[in-house]
Design a protein around this nucleic acid. Sequence first.
DNA 1: CAACTAACGAAACTGGAGTCCCTTTATGAG
DNA 2: CTCATAAAGGGACTCCAGTTTCGTTAGTTG
Lengths: 211, 211
Amino acid sequence: MSPEVNDAANDDTCGDPGTVRPGGRTARVRAAVLRTAGDALAEHGFARLDLADVARRADVGKSTVYRRWGTVAGLVADLLTDMAEQSLPRTETGSLLGDLRANAELVRSTLADPRQGALFKAVIAAATTDARTAESLHRFYEIRVAEWAPCVEHAVLRGELPKGTDPYEVIRAVSAPLYYRLLTSDAPLDEAAGARAAEAAAAAAKAGVYT
Amino acid sequence: MSPEVNDAANDDTCGDPGTVRPGGRTARVRAAVLRTAGDALAEHGFARLDLADVARRADVGKSTVYRRWGTVAGLVADLLTDMAEQSLPRTETGSLLGDLRANAELVRSTLADPRQGALFKAVIAAATTDARTAESLHRFYEIRVAEWAPCVEHAVLRGELPKGTDPYEVIRAVSAPLYYRLLTSDAPLDEAAGARAAEAAAAAAKAGVYT
DNA sequence: CAACTAACGAAACTGGAGTCCCTTTATGAG
DNA sequence: CTCATAAAGGGACTCCAGTTTCGTTAGTTG
């Protein structure tokens, strides 16, 4: 199913729809569909998302959506790629704890926001279903983590953390408890939770757990 | 929809199907359906689970499944209730780090197991869709966390941790990075990851983060 | 500014998930 | 053991998500 890469003799311009002629209309359709998909995901969650409804709400032909994205999982994967491209600026406070607190607060406020929180939940749920979607999700988080890793590297250079500390693991340690709470508990994601996440990661890193 | 509790004048024996006459056949059907549902969830994930297929594979009438559980979310909620009842024994090693390591290894090996890991992913995904399912999931984790909280309480009594440490938060801190890795990364959940999770939680707790 | 064609849109079609209704089974009470 | 009925089973029916087809629109190229 779907246009796949054929064995040989296929060196002509044959890509997925949207890649060969990415002109104005195509881009407009993509933007409208992705925005609508985000809204629908945040509203009804991943399971109740059907492409026909997205097409209707985005004022786009139903067959267009099915042709370009095919399945819910495929659409979510593309949405994640789009989200990964929108990079957020990182603040630098000068101390490890300050930086981790800033990161924790950014993550916390995002997840605590009703729309964004629901969207992230839906996207994580979608990734459990489809391998391609999972790959997109993993790449998304890899990019986000990499954006904040320099904070930890600087802390190592300043001597705040032991040499050989894995910067990625420290950043992940900040997010982990927030996501865990979002998914497995109904407790609110308040600012105290964010602060605790940052402090715990800093304490563990200073103890040399992530070397 | 579904038989709900009516306001008044409903004091006769009117419960959801399966509660009034929970005899052999009814219990057998429930067991068969839940087992099959677990298998199907682990195999295809939450999105591709349809009750008709579960009924077929469980050798149970389709209408029976729809009558008793109604929706995929309802079935998963019941499955979670069933899982919560199967309590796992807790080991006690005598030191905080030892206990947390044991807990981490239990969680890690469960999530790393292909079938169990996929099942947990699916169940978490299902909970993002339906409020009742989410409630069941939250209760499940509350029970599991409560089972291990005494380890932390004992550590406080032994003087290993500062007074006023929240036992639940420490136990959650052990699981969080493992679940975060399961859901947002394709890195394997090896034993080192489990050990690190335990050590990080212990270090943070000793630093007084969870007071 | 044509001509070409990639991509979109409208509408008919289809298969299977979910519903309904009636029949059969077997549980639990007397 | 017998009876009343809770619950399961079977199968026809409905409805809509997803597919297919074909005509239309609008980027792209020379």
